[in-house]
C-alpha cells in the first residue's frame, strides 16, 4: 500500500459518502444518473468475485464490501425509495448505458489478463469502469444547475482514478517494474473523460460561480 493508492481509495470512498449524504439529507437524487450507478454495481460485482476466495487484507475485504454495499444501496434509493425515486431525472438520464456492456465484454474476451472466467470478468470490470461515468457526464451537461454535492461527487470520482494512475507509476518504479496495460490504459481513458469536467469545475470553483457545463 502506498500513499497514492490510499489517497485514491479514500477519495473514492469520500465520493460515495458525498453522494449518500446528498441523497439522504436532501432526500433527492436530482442530477444523479441512475445508469452510471447501475454500471458501478456491475463493475464492483465483476471485479470483486474473489471477495470470498482470496483474502488479501482486512482493509481490502472491508473496502470491497463497502463499495458493493453502498453502490447497491444507492441504486436501491434511486429505484425504490418512495421519496427519492420521485426526484430522479428520468427523462434526462437517457444514455443507453446497456450499449456499453457488450463492447467491454468483447474487449475482455479479446484482451483478458488471463483467459479464465474471473480474469475475463475482472478485465471487463476495468473496461466498464472506464466508460461508466458517461451517462452521468451527459446528464450534467443537460442539468441547468448542478448542485454542489453532485459536482463534488463527480470531481472526487474522477480524482480517485487520477490518484490510482500516480500509484501505478510509483509501483512500476519501486515494486513491480511490470507494464500493466489493462488498468493503465483504461485508467487513462477514464481520467481523460473527466478532463473537460475538471476544467469547468476548477474554473467555477476559482471564480466562485455556479458550475455549468457547456451543452
Amino acid at each position: 500500500m502506498n500513499i497514492f493508492r490510499l489517497a485514491g481509495d479514500m477519495t473514492h470512498l469520500l465520493s460515495i459518502v458525498v453522494l449518500l449524504l446528498k441523497i439522504r439529507t436532501t432526500k433527492s437524487c436530482a442530477g444523479i444518473s441512475l445508469k452510471t450507478q447501475e454500471l458501478y454495481v456491475i463493475v464492483f460485482i465483476t471485479r470483486y468475485l474473489d471477495l470470498f476466495t482470496r483474502y488479501v487484507s482486512f482493509y481490502n475485504t472491508a473496502m470491497k464490501l463497502v463499495f458493493i454495499g453502498t453502490s447497491v444501496a444507492i441504486v436501491w434509493y434511486m429505484r425504490l425509495h418512495k421519496v427519492v425515486k420521485q426526484t430522479y431525472s428520468r427523462d434526462e438520464d437517457t444514455f443507453k448505458h446497456y450499449l456499453l456492456i457488450p463492447p467491454c465484454f468483447i474487449l475482455a474476451l479479446l484482451i483478458p489478463l488471463e483467459f479464465t472466467v474471473t480474469e475475463i470478468l475482472w478485465s471487463f470490470s476495468i473496461y466498464l469502469e472506464a466508460v461508466a461515468i458517461l451517462p452521468q457526464l451527459l446528464l450534467l451537461q443537460r442539468s441547468s444547475n448542478i448542485d454542489n454535492l453532485t459536482g463534488s461527487y463527480v470531481f472526487l470520482l474522477g480524482a480517485y482514478r487520477a490518484l490510482y494512475i500516480v500509484n501505478w507509476v510509483y509501483r512500476f518504479f519501486t515494486e513491480t517494474h511490470k507494464i500493466r496495460w489493462i488498468p493503465w490504459i483504461s485508467g487513462l481513458v477514464q481520467t481523460a473523460l473527466y478532463a473537460d469536467f475538471f476544467y469547468y469545475y476548477i474554473k467555477s470553483w476559482k471564480n466562485h460561480e455556479k458550475l455549468r457545463l457547456p451543452a
Binding site: 475482472w122 509501483r171 515494486e175 500493466r180
Partner: peptide, 10 residues
C-alpha cells in the same frame, strides 16, 4: 505471476 500483484488493489 502478474495476476497476484494486480489483485491487492481495489
Amino acid at each position: 505471476t502478474v495476476t497476484t500483484d494486480l489483485k491487492d488493489e481495489l
